Computed example of a mutant assay.
Amino acid sequence: MSDAVSISDLATADPAQVTPFLNKGFGEVLGLEYTELSGDRVRAQWAAVPAHHQPAGIVNGGVYCSVIETLASTGGGIWLGERGHVVGVNNNTDFLRAVREGTLFAEATPVHRGRTQQLWQVTVVDERDRLIARGQVRLANITDTDRLGS
Results as ranks from 00 to 15, higher is better:
T74K: 01
E101F: 10
L131C: 06
A106V: 07
I7L: 11
E36P: 10
S6A: 08
V42W: 01
D144I: 05
G76V: 06
P50L: 04
I7W: 02
M1H: 11
D9F: 02
T123K: 15
P50S: 06
G88Y: 07
V122C: 09
G62E: 01
T74Y: 01
L32F: 01
P50A: 03
D3P: 09
A47K: 15
I7H: 06
P110E: 05
R43Y: 04
L22N: 01
P110S: 02
N90E: 13
R134P: 07
D129R: 14
G25E: 05
P20Y: 02
I142A: 12
V124E: 00
L71A: 04
T143Y: 06
P110N: 04
R83S: 11
G76W: 03
V87N: 03
R138N: 08
P55Y: 02
T103N: 09
A4Y: 09
A51I: 05
A140G: 09
G76I: 05
H53S: 10
W46I: 00
T74C: 12
I68K: 08
V49A: 10
R97I: 03
L139H: 01
V122M: 11
I68C: 06
P50C: 07
H52I: 00
G76S: 10
P20I: 04
L71F: 01
P110V: 07
A108P: 15
L10S: 02
